[in-house]
Structures are given as C-alpha cells and as structure tokens.
C-alpha cells in the first residue's frame, strides 16, 4: 500500500475510518439493545458508551491500517492508494467498496425511519384530496386582493433595499479590516482580523430567520424587524465577499502607490479601491436580489411585507388568495433576478 499522501493524509484516513466504524457500531448497538425513549435521553451514560465504541473503532481502524487494507479513509485521504488497489481487483472484492455500501445502506435505513417516510401517507385518499384542493385554489388565484399584494411586495422590496443600502458602507469599511493581505502586517492588526472574521462568521451562521425572530421581540413585529434582520446578515455576507475580493488584488499597484510617499489610507483608496469597485457593485446587486427573496420568507416570522400576509392567508387556508400572492412574488423575484443578471453581466 502506497503512503504517497504523507503522514497528514495517513492520520486523517485513520480518523475518518474510526468515525465511520464508530457510527456503524453505534447504530448496531441501538438496533440490538432497543433502548426506550427515556434511555435515549440519558446523555451522560450514552456518551460514555459512545466514547468506548469510538475507542474500539479507532483501535480497529489502526489495525486495518497496519494490515494494509484499502479502507475508505485510505482511499480518500492517501493519494495513490485507490488506483493501485483498483487495478488489482474488481470493486466488489475490495474492502472499501463494501465499507462504503454498508455505511450508505445503514444511513438510508435510519434516515427513512427518522424522517418518518411513508408511502401510505403519500397516497392516503383524504390527504390527497386536501392537496388537490390546495393546488386548485393556488392555480385559480383570487386577483381581487392584487392591489393589497402589490402594496405588500413594494414594502418587501423596500425592506430588502434598505437592508442592502445600510449594509454596503459598513461592509465596505469592514472588508479591508477583514482582508488578510492588509491585516497580516502587524500582530495587533492580525489579532483584530481574526476577531472580526470570527464575529462575521458567527453572525453569518445565524440565519436571517432567527435574526428576524430576535428583532421582532426587540423592536416589535413589522417591516423594521425584517429590515434589521436582513441588514445584519447582509453586513456579514458582504463583508466576507468583499474582503475576499480585497485579498485577490494585485500587489504591483499597491507597491507603486506606496513608492510615491502616499499614506496608508491613500494607498487603499488609490491602489486597491479601483481594482475592487466593479466586483463590489456586482456582489451588491446580487445581495439585493437575494434580500428580496429572503425578505419574503422573513415576513412569515413577523418581518413585515408580503410574507406576513402570505402567512395570514395560509393559516386560514385561503388558497386562491395565497395563489395570487405566489404569482406576485414569482413575478417580482423573476424580474429582480433577470435585471440583476443583466446588470452584473454588463459591468463585468
């Protein structure tokens, strides 16, 4: 067995195999023991058992590695291992193929149970009638509420617009302090870079939906809460995308401007900004486009705009009215999407 992947690949491969094995062992234990719901909730004891199983798997994975068996871990993480064993024998006689099939099969079985998959529910007559009813309503939209829908979507578009507009200057300033090539020159600025990157990643990983819930408690249900939620998410996303553009700028112009005796701020403004302004605009338009779509969803948890009335009609099962809203949303989203694609193409 080749060890071209080096020591790093070797260690990763063993850890990967250990995790796969432990996963199978945990599933097997649950299946064999059949614990009650109360027993499933006993965190301390269960993690203890899990750790023992993980330790056993790690030992087994190491043993497999020593024996030179081509496991999934070695095939994925050690370059050169796969073709070699592939040449020697067909896939159905290799260890890793059966290991992979077993993991996928077990996962599908458990997944089907966890998601309560049921063909019976899908073909149940009463349920089917309900769905038909819903579709019939949606496909015969009640255009009497069209004026109301249009006013609501105008609110949604403005929520998205304001969120983007406020986020852009903030993200613009943050993007330079979140760019590695600018901030890695000094330990203090680098520490700031790491802190900011972490803060941005955390706020970005909190979905706008959750921000909307937070702000609807804070400032009350309505478009303001929705706008704040989208703004926070836009700042984090734009700052990251912008800073990646800053990290890709050419160094030559920076050196050229520096050599004239320009200050730090002047160097950023005259050497970096001209290189990034077009990609910035492109990302900004795309963000507004995304925000319009997100603002609709956010409205459903109290963020105002068309989402809020969509939620109301849906709750009362007023399907023809829902149908009208769906038509309006689809039209606006398509319009925004097409317009933003055209503009981004034009300024490339």
């Amino acid at each position: 067995m080749s060890t071209d992947g080096g020591r790093g690949g070797l260690a990763k491969g063993v850890v990967f195999d250990a995790i796969l094995l432990a996963y199978l062992l945990v599933l097997a234990t649950v299946a064999a023991y059949g614990p009650s719901p109360e027993q499933m909730l006993m965190l301390g004891r269960n993690s203890f058992v899990g750790l023992i199983l993980l330790a056993a798997s790690a030992t087994a994975a190491l043993a497999l590695r020593r024996a030179g068996v081509a496991t999934v871990g070695s095939v994925v993480f050690e370059k050169g291992a796969a073709p070699k064993s592939g040449e020697l024998r067909p896939w159905y006689r290799s260890f890793w193929a059966w290991q992979l099939l077993l993991v996928l099969g077990a996962t599908f079985y458990v997944g089907a149970r966890e998601t309560e998959m049921s063909l019976y529910e899908l073909t149940d007559e009463a349920g089917f009638r309900g769905a038909t009813n819903l579709f019939r309503g949606i496909f015969s939209p009640n255009f009497a509420i069209l004026p109301k829908a249009v006013l609501a979507i105008i609110e949604t578009v403005y929520i998205a617009f304001m969120a983007t507009l406020i986020a852009v200057p903030v993200a613009f300033v943050l993007s330079f302090t979140a760019a590695k090539n600018i901030m890695s020159r000094h330990p203090a600025t680098f520490a700031f870079y790491v802190a900011l990157r972490t803060a941005l990643n955390v706020s970005r990983s909190v979905e706008p939906l959750i921000w909307a819930i937070i702000f609807s408690v804070w400032v009350g249900i309505g478009p303001f809460a929705g706008m704040l939620a989208l703004m926070i998410h836009s700042i984090a996303s734009l700052a990251k995308q912008y800073s990646e553009i800053v990290e890709c700028v050419e160094d030559g112009p920076i050196e050229g401007i520096q050599s004239t005796g320009a200050s730090f701020i002047q160097t950023i403004w005259f050497a970096i900004v001209p290189q990034i302004v077009l990609p910035y605009i492109s990302f900004t338009i795309y963000r507004w486009d995304i925000n319009v779509r997100m603002a609709t969803v956010i409205g459903m948890v109290g963020g105002g705009g068309i989402g809020t009335i969509l939620y109301q009609y849906q709750g009362q099962a007023m399907w023809p009215e829902v149908g009208c809203l769906v038509v309006v949303i689809a039209a606006v989203v398509w319009l925004m999407d097409t317009a933003s694609a055209y503009i981004r193409e034009a300024i490339k």
């Binding site: 050419e250 030559g252 112009p253 050196e255 050229g256 401007i257 520096q258 050599s259 004239t260 005796g261 005259f270 050497a271 001209p274 290189q275």
Partner: peptide, 15 residues
C-alpha cells in the same frame, strides 16, 4: 519616498 521616486519592471500602474 516623495523625493526618491521609483519605477518598476511591471510598471505597477493602477488598472
């Protein structure tokens, strides 16, 4: 640097 100007192999102009 203001008194000691510099030009470069790859010109280093701002695109």
């Amino acid at each position: 640097r203001q008194r000691v100007a510099m030009i470069f192999q790859h010109f280093n102009l701002v695109p």
